[in-house]
Amino acid sequence: MKVVGLIIALLAGSLLVYATADFPPLGDPNSPASVHVSPRYIEKTMEETDVPNIVTSVLADYRGYDTMFETTVIFCAGVACFLLLRVYRREEPQERLYRHVLTGVTIHVKAGKLPPSPDFERIDSAWTPHDLIIKTICRLLIPFIQLFALYVIAHGHHSPGGGFQGGVMLGASVIVLAMSQDLRTAVRRLREKADALMCATGVFIYAGTGALCLLLGSNFLDYSALAPVLHVDPIMARSHGIFMVEVGVGVAVMGVMIWIYNNVSSMGKYDEGL
C-alpha cells in the first residue's frame, strides 16, 4: 500500500509539475485569474457598496449566496458532530474525583456524587496539578479576546476582518475557558441548548436578511432594498446589509466551533473535557 500510495502521489505531482509550464509566474498582474471578474469588483466596490474592504464586499454582497451556503455547511458540520457523538444515556462514570480546596487532598468517590459545597471541587480524572498561573492568565485574557473579536467583526468593512474571523475568535475564547478551567465550567457559562440555538440563529440572521430584501420587493440578498427601512440611501443600505450578514456569520461560526469542541473533547458526554 505504501508503494502504491507513493506512486500515485508522485504521478499526481508530476502531472501538476507538467501543467505548471502553462501557469503564469508568481505576481503577474495579467494572469487570467486577475483580469476577468476581479477588476470589476475592485473598481466598483466603493461606488456600489461603500465598503473599502473589497474582500468583505465580495464575500457578503457580490457572492452572498456562496457565503450563505458556506455558513450552512458549517452549521451542518456542527449538527453532524452532535448527531454522531452526543450520548444521552445516563451512564454513571466509574468514579468521580473531588479535591478539597483548602488542603489539596483528592478523594475518590466510587458511586454517586458529593453534594455541592464550597469546600470540594470536582476535578477531571486526567487531572494535572492545580494550575493557578494558567487559570488566572486565561481569566484575565478572555474578556480582551472577546472584545477584540467584536472589533474584528464590526470593523470588517474597513480593515481585515469580518464574521468568520471574529466568530472563530469568539469561539476560541470559550474554548480557552474550557481548556484552562474544565469543560463543566465552560458549559455552565454557555449551555448546550443556548449554543445550538446560537448556531441556528446565525444562519437564520443571514437567510432572514436575504428574505427581508425579498419581502421588500427586491432580489434575495439585494441589500439596497433595505434603504427605506434603515432610512439611508441604497448604497449605504448595502453596507449595512453586509454588516447584518456578517453578524449572522459570526454568531453561527462561534456557536459551531464551541459545539464541535464540546462534543469531540468530551466524546459526547459533556462530562470531562481535555
Binding site: V37, S38, Y41, V58, L59
Partner: peptide, 28 residues
C-alpha cells in the same frame, strides 16, 4: 485580486468544521 482571498476565507473555516466532523467519526 480579492477573489481568491474570499474563496479561501470561507474554505479555511469550512476545513476546520470538516476536521471536526472527521475527528467525530474517528471517535465513533
Amino acid at each position: 485580486n480579492p477573489l481568491p482571498h474570499v474563496l479561501m476565507l470561507t474554505a479555511i473555516v469550512v476545513s476546520v468544521a470538516t476536521l471536526g466532523v472527521a475527528l467525530a467519526l474517528g471517535v465513533k
